[in-house]
Every structure is written in structure tokens, then in C-alpha cells.
């Protein structure tokens, strides 16, 4: 499951920043710190996550999605609470 979520997160990130595809991602470091990800990129990445998972992601949760590790944990928790 974790691998599946990881793929969802990476796909969402690379779709807004295709030039980053293939880059090594440090799991516990924020995307902003690793790459030049700005607010618009980040918003589109969250939209991508929401579309891929069907989750409605409130704005207050955005900060949990800033790193690969954080985002995977967030998706797992939200999906689990939905009974998956």
C-alpha cells in the first residue's frame, strides 16, 4: 500500500514539475526545500493528489503534504479512516 501511495504522490509532483522526473526525493525533506516548488506548483500538486485519490483535501491539511513521507502518511491515514 505504501508503495502505491508513494507512486500517487510522485506522479502528482512530477505532473506539475515534469523537469523533476527521475530526481532523487529525500522522503522527510519538504519538496520546497529540495526543489524550487512554489505556491502554484504546490496547489496543483494537491489538486493532483485529490484527483488521484478522490479525497477532498481541506486547506488546513496542506502542510502535511509537503514531503514525500508526510504525504504518504496522510493518504494512508485518510484512506484508512474511510474504511479501506
Amino acid at each position: 500500500m505504501a508503495q502505491e501511495y508513494e507512486k500517487i504522490v510522485k506522479d502528482a509532483l512530477f505532473s506539475v514539475a515534469p523537469d523533476l522526473e527521475g530526481e532523487e526525493i529525500v522522503p522527510d525533506e519538504t519538496f520546497r526545500d529540495q526543489f524550487e516548488i512554489d505556491s502554484i506548483d504546490f496547489l496543483n500538486y494537491v489538486i493532483g493528489l485529490s484527483k488521484a485519490t478522490g479525497l477532498d483535501i481541506p486547506e488546513v491539511d496542506y502542510s502535511e503534504l509537503e514531503s514525500l513521507q508526510g504525504a504518504v502518511a496522510y493518504l494512508r491515514r485518510r484512506k484508512a479512516s474511510m474504511g479501506f
Binding site: L43, I47, S50, E59
Partner: peptide, 15 residues
């Protein structure tokens, strides 16, 4: 903005 975005679908939120 936060109040406005809370009522909106994710793709309609504003920065």
C-alpha cells in the same frame, strides 16, 4: 481567504 477557500472545491481555491 481561508474562509473563502474552506467553502470551495480544491481546484477553485485561491492563493
Amino acid at each position: 481567504l481561508a474562509a473563502r477557500n474552506a467553502e470551495r472545491a480544491i481546484e477553485d481555491r485561491l492563493l
